[in-house]
Amino acid sequence: MIELQGLEKRYGNSFAVRDLNLEFAEGELTALLGPSGCGKTTTLRMINRLIEPTGGRVLLRGQDTQTLKPETLRRGIGYVIQQIGLFPHLNVAQNVATVPDLLGRPARETERRVDELLDLVGLSPAEYRHKKPAELSGGQAQRVGVARALAADPPVLLMDEPFGALDPLARDKLQDAFRDIQRRLKKTVIMVTHDIDEALRLADRIALMNAGELAQFGTPDDLIHRPASDFVRQFLGEDAALRQLAGRRAGDFAHPSDPSGLPTVEADLNARSALGIMLREGSDALAVTEAGRPIGVLRWSDLQTSAAQIETVMRDKTT
């Protein structure tokens, strides 16, 4: 869908991004992960040409983006930023309708689309359509931000730390909501983040960057279990496996078995918290229920599979 070929941005003698080669697959969410100053935002902004590269190419469906007018290119790409950037003088509906308006879509169609999108991001259109951005909480505002980015139904969505400015509770809820949206819409999403948990939780693939260069590109499992370098291992941290558990549902690990007499958890609880409950309750198994009905049992050993994989990989490497 999008291909970066030898992409480079230099300021004077220093490189913000250097010889970056990446391919973002259609319908996948790729996280651009890395410490601050690693060039991830610069990379993102070179894709919609908010920053012009000093070298290399960006191909969108095989077409060099330099052949397009920047405005035309950007209108076809959704854009969500940490500071949200809603227009304070326009109401929610007008904010969401911005790009369809720029594209000259008929007003009636846009109006319907706006309601659809507000529903999609979990805001009741009747209640929110006419509110001004100042009347929204941070979480609500960013929901509008996401709706605005999706308004013209762009195949590609660029997100720059979209949930970074929210409080932890709102961030969790919005991440969940966005994961659901992404499951339904299957957009090609590129998301800049420095939050490892967020990347492990949402991303199909992670491009980990360091000092303007690509450190590793792969699935979350690849990065955790097969780190390409010490930097990758250090950046993900000793508790990377735990972090990954945090991104999975307890229900995904459960096996059908007799749950009687075991402490009970909801299937939607994340696996890391389930592990915590095991430790607290002194039990090596939990009964998992979904909507009040038992669906199976989650055992300590089920969770260990991934940890065990790490050990085998490490053993293989050292021998």
Binding site: G39, K40, D160
Partner: peptide
């Protein structure tokens, strides 16, 4: 935008 990201840009 993440300004610190364009390190050395000044």
């Amino acid at each position: 935008m993440n300004i610190s990201d364009s390190e050395g840009a000044g």
